[in-house]
Amino acid sequence: MKKNTKVLLGGCTIILTILILLIAATPGASGTEIPIQEVLANPDKYEDRYVTTEGFLIEESIEWRADEIELYFDIVDSDGNVLSVYHHGVRPDNFSEGVITILEGYIVPGEPFQAERVKTKCPSKYEGEDPNDYDPEFHKELLDDK
């Protein structure tokens, strides 16, 4: 074989190997985003597929087992559909009532959602106020009082 052919074959092999490793290492890239209602209605359809779903945390449902690093909780969507969740990993810091919880993991029919990743969005209390509601007179009064 010529030297150019060997280099070309070696380069193609390296590129193909990198592509295979990237696809295998990122199951979330091939995941499907589905609403809670769909998870509950068709669990068999999504069995063994990496999926993403989200809902509002129900604080009373949180069961944190620190010794086993296990977290059980429920989330609810705007229609009232409740999804039970199991996560083997650390408990997120801002885990409180009404926080939006984003789950990535697997559906096993008859069992809680098997979350590999649990992320939370900041509650609306941390969002800024609407700039259209700004009242310059209010701030002028505050400064005049000092």
Rank of each mutant, 00 (worst) to 15 (best):
E70T: 01
A24V: 06
F113W: 11
E129Q: 04
G89Q: 05
D135N: 13
E54A: 15
S78Q: 14
T52P: 02
E59A: 15
T120P: 00
E141H: 02
G80N: 08
L16W: 03
G105Y: 06
S78K: 13
D79V: 05
N42V: 09
W64C: 03
K121W: 02
D44M: 10
D93I: 06
E38Q: 14
E63G: 02
L40F: 14
G28N: 08
I14Q: 00
L8F: 09
V118L: 05
I69P: 00
E111H: 12
L143G: 00
F56R: 13
E59D: 13
K125D: 00
I102M: 12
D79Q: 14
D77P: 15
V7Y: 05
P109S: 12
E116G: 02
Y126G: 00
L57Q: 12
P136K: 02
K146Q: 04
G98I: 09
S61F: 09
S124M: 06
E60D: 14
G89V: 05
F95W: 08
D77H: 14
A41L: 14
A24N: 04
Q114P: 03
A41Q: 14
E33A: 09
Y134R: 03
I69A: 01
K6R: 08
P123C: 09
Y86N: 08
V99M: 11
P27H: 03
Y72M: 06
V51P: 12
D93V: 06
E141K: 08
A24S: 04
S78P: 03
I102P: 07
A25K: 02
T13W: 04
N132R: 10
